[in-house]
Design a protein around this nucleic acid. Sequence first.
DNA 1: TTTACCTGTTGACATTTATCAACGGAAGTT
DNA 2: AACTTCCGTTGATAAATGTCAACAGGTAAA
Lengths: 194, 194
Amino acid sequence: MHEALFKYIKTHSLTPLTESEMEVIKNTFVPNKLRKRQYFLQEGEVCKYMAFIVKGAMRQYSVDDKGVEHIVQLSIENWWVGDRESHTNLTPSIYNIDAWEDTDFLQATKDGFLNRLSSIPAINELFRNLDERYAIATQKRLNAHISLTAEKRYAELAKSYPEFLQRFPQHIIASYLGITKETLSRIRKQMVSK
Amino acid sequence: MHEALFKYIKTHSLTPLTESEMEVIKNTFVPNKLRKRQYFLQEGEVCKYMAFIVKGAMRQYSVDDKGVEHIVQLSIENWWVGDRESHTNLTPSIYNIDAWEDTDFLQATKDGFLNRLSSIPAINELFRNLDERYAIATQKRLNAHISLTAEKRYAELAKSYPEFLQRFPQHIIASYLGITKETLSRIRKQMVSK
DNA sequence: TTTACCTGTTGACATTTATCAACGGAAGTT
DNA sequence: AACTTCCGTTGATAAATGTCAACAGGTAAA
């Protein structure tokens, strides 16, 4: 179960892990699983864990006044899930996170991060790197929203993350793109005829 | 000139700076200034510096096929500017950054960050913290784009960053919100009548 | 097997926002 | 002072996207 995480850390940090560090990681990241549709986090709760997905898929979304879900993040194997804002500030989250497929993951608490993992250089490098990449990716996505049409945003998504289109149904993809499922359906129809 | 930066570091990190660290910072962050409309970074260039604004205002934007500018970031005193993606990966930037007012700032190269500043705990805490806050803020802004109307996004901006509305003209704010200046003008008209 | 739900599509229509053009006032420049 | 540029507003119209309703095929559940 932890093998996937060790492999991930290896590819995303420079410093290798020692045997004892691997032990600490094994004890700090505890395995857990959710069945499809079960919640990892619900709006109003404080996000207790940040988790690494070993197998499966989750989605993070907010719900507006009218009850419509707006997907802010989709995550599959080798992605992290959790609401960083809520997790680091211990504030109630405005997001929901649930399993879209049966999902196996490894979770760690804030306490675990601060008191056990923070002394491991590879972990620090990893999260530093992760925050950076996340900030860059979100910046790009935001720029796409401000400057591109829905059609171009879809094309970009299909190019950047083709596996998403396989794993999630169209209405989920539409929500992720910030459009309705009907609009996405029409955009796709137009695209094939071009 | 460096006083503003020291003060900023003090409020955003736990570890205090030693005298010698302050010396290193003074030597690594070099003062520079731009007149209104001059470029800090142009599309296609690699972003050589990350900069801390001491006085003034800058904007970061991309330009689309039709020559329309799309503002992705506005920055004033005590904000950082630069394209992190380009700066860390040494890739050509897709953004332009220019001064909206005459601006004084302190700039440091990637080399300066890696070889001089990385041994200073306060700086590491600061940037870790900065990346985190940036990632969270961008996430929020993206969520606003996906789930809110233009009117609500404007109201949120007015509440979160009222100083922006004073410092930047409406067509800049409109672009930041991802709408045209005409639409923003009409939204504002509607809002006062409510 | 039957039922219920989930998914994607389509049509008709409403709403939001963009586009284009024009105007007046404010501010900056010569 | 005359001139130019920038800024915000307004009107008319077009384009993009949303909303609501209906339907059909697929899949899961009873």
